[in-house]
Design a protein around this nucleic acid. Structure first.
Lengths: 130, 130
DNA sequence: TAACAAACGTTATATTATAACAATGATAAA
DNA sequence: TTTATCATTGTTATAATATAACGTTTGTTA
């Protein structure tokens, strides 16, 4: 089990870059950014990303194959994630709305499936791009 | 503009396979399935997939990079899609729930973004796999 | 300190997706 | 009917995303 707090060297490097970024980052763009720090292979990036996701430090934006830092306290280890995505400028914003999150979490599928987690992605144009 | 009804040859071939499938299909698995019909290149599959998505005939399951036929009348050209995904057997079910869909569609982001579309993916264990 | 697990580095390769270009077919306006 | 236009096709090549497999190192804890 990943410990709640301690990050390994590579995990910290990758997290730092994602946290500093203004928007979502792709794995290979992270890779290019850390080559000066001695990380040379995609595998190293993907391993760090996997762990950071497990810990809830970052999220993957599935529709973009890109990664953002978690800015929410709501989503507790990514059980309930929601994002707004601008189709023009590619901006991604994490949505932290307790009501929305609770409503969706409480949804029960007729077919008897018990949900552990959901991910919601909204698409549109942000304020700037409208 | 794609016409509402008429599908081209390749589009029809690809749609047929997706509709017959029990679960989500990946682009390259579609490709292997249609090589006997004279379709040889990924580009041909992806082009058909793109058009079928535009027409609302199929949906992409973003977390799986796979494609399913649309079974819902609710989602009118994929403005409001929701799926339940079994993490064990990979089964995907389109959720067609007007209340859920309306609730989410009416959500307004504080930061002034106007949404055109959303995609929601639930994860868990299906009845069988529980 | 021995044993084990997690993280690391590395090479290779698998999987998913798009670029670019020429040819063909379908539609409809002149 | 001819010509213009636009969607679709076929094809080759390549880009972008992600994982397999192996051995080594580091960190924890019994």
């Amino acid at each position: 089990m990943a410990q709640a707090q301690t990050l390994s060297r590579n995990q910290q490097i990758v997290l730092d870059i994602i946290e500093k970024a203004k928007g979502p980052l792709k794995a290979y763009s992270i890779l290019f950014n850390v080559q000066k720090k001695g990380i040379n292979a995609p595998q190293q990036i993907y391993r760090a990303l996997d762990k950071l996701i497990e810990m809830g430090k970052i999220h993957k934006i599935e529709s973009k194959n890109a990664f953002v830092a978690c800015r929410s306290s709501d989503c507790e280890i990514s059980k309930a994630t929601a994002f707004s995505i601008c189709e023009s400028c590619e901006m991604v914003d994490e949505i932290s709305d307790t009501k929305l999150s609770k409503y969706i979490s409480s949804f029960n599928h007729k077919k008897g499936m018990k949900f552990k987690r959901f991910n919601l992605e909204f698409f549109g144009l942000c304020k700037k791009c409208k």
